[in-house]
Amino acid sequence: MQTVTTFSNHDLRDEIKAYWSLRAETFDTQPGHEIFSEAERTAWQTLLRRHLGDGNDREALDLACGTAVVSHLLDDLGFRVTGMDWAEPMLERARAKARARGRAIRFLMGDAENTMELDGSYDVITNRHLVWTLVDPLSAFREWHRLLRPGGRLLIVDGDFVNPGLVARLARKVSDWLGTGNTHNGPSTGALTATHQSILSRVYFSGGARAEAVVDLLRQAGFDKMTVDTDMRAIHRTQKKNFGFLKGLERATQHRYAICAEKSAAG
């Protein structure tokens, strides 16, 4: 008789939390996570400003903030920033970084799918590489809609990391042949790689977080005026010097995007 092991959403969320807690120690050493040049910082700020405008003291919530890379970008643009993450090791590094830079960023431990924040608390919500990990994205998007004030904006930066294009597939084959391995943006150790793959196989977007699927769920959650921005070239150009040739090639040809969605001014 075959034994089938099932995982509840609670179990999977706990695994995701533990995984990112382990990743915290090396998170800022990895290109694509931390920013390694002023040119890259400027490219990210340009993307944020293109969709959100200048901060002008507006309230911003950076969900799954990690070590606060995006939180600091928002702070630089003049937003009043709250960073939220559910991995305490990430938050420890985020708080230390803010102290070192003398920034008054508020950090909270919380679940991006159930923040416990009050209705209409924020003008802007951001997240980077969070959506692909969500267990129930529609519920999460409804939660984010609830948190925004009328006319508020949500900016999602994410991608399909499951279905590589032809160039990425060839890059991986060449990398495997050369023995360089691990051209994806995941962990480098065998145990963490296995955990990463296990989690990826069970999240909602296990088949890949395509922009059109994310937009469809955002509409169901009540958002309108969606903009899908796939022009990430300026960011990729500044990052490629920190990647090997094959990794840089793969990254530049992946389905990566920024989605800006608005909450109706009518609420």
Rank of each mutant, 00 (worst) to 15 (best):
D136W: 08
G165W: 07
R146T: 06
L170C: 10
W144N: 01
T133P: 08
V157S: 13
M109I: 13
L134C: 05
K173E: 14
M116N: 13
D158T: 02
P150K: 06
E113F: 01
I156A: 00
H145A: 14
P150C: 05
G152I: 03
E113P: 00
T115K: 04
M116Q: 14
A112Y: 05
S121L: 03
Y122S: 04
G152C: 01
R149D: 05
L130R: 07
W132M: 12
G152D: 05
W132R: 11
G152E: 05
R146A: 05
L118I: 02
V124M: 07
L130S: 11
W144L: 04
R146P: 05
V131P: 09
T115L: 03
P150A: 02
W144D: 03
T115C: 07
V157C: 13
L147M: 14
V162G: 00
I125S: 10
L138T: 13
A112P: 08
I125M: 12
I125Q: 11
Y122E: 03
T126G: 06
T133G: 03
N127V: 00
K173P: 00
I125R: 07
V167T: 13
R146Q: 06
A140E: 14
L170R: 10
L118C: 00
P164N: 10
F161V: 12
V162H: 01
D119N: 15
V167R: 07
K173T: 11
G152F: 00
A171Y: 07
G120A: 07
I156S: 01
E143W: 09
G151I: 08
K173Y: 00
R169P: 04
D111R: 08
L170G: 01
G165P: 08
P137N: 12
D158W: 02
R149V: 15
I125E: 11
D158E: 10
L154D: 04
D123C: 06
V157I: 15
R153T: 15
W144G: 01
N114V: 04
V135C: 14
S121C: 07
L155P: 03
L108D: 12
G110R: 10
W144V: 02
G159Y: 13
W144A: 00
L148F: 11
P150R: 04
L166K: 09
K173I: 05
G159C: 11
L134Q: 14
S121G: 13
V124E: 09
H129P: 00
D123L: 08
G159V: 09
T115D: 02
S121M: 03
T126Q: 08
P164Q: 09
F141S: 06
R149A: 07
L138Y: 10
L130D: 09
A168V: 02
T126W: 09
L134Y: 08
L138G: 11
V131T: 15
V157M: 14
S121R: 07
L155E: 07
G151N: 07
A112G: 13
G151C: 08
V167G: 00
L108V: 12
P164Y: 10
E143S: 12
R169H: 05
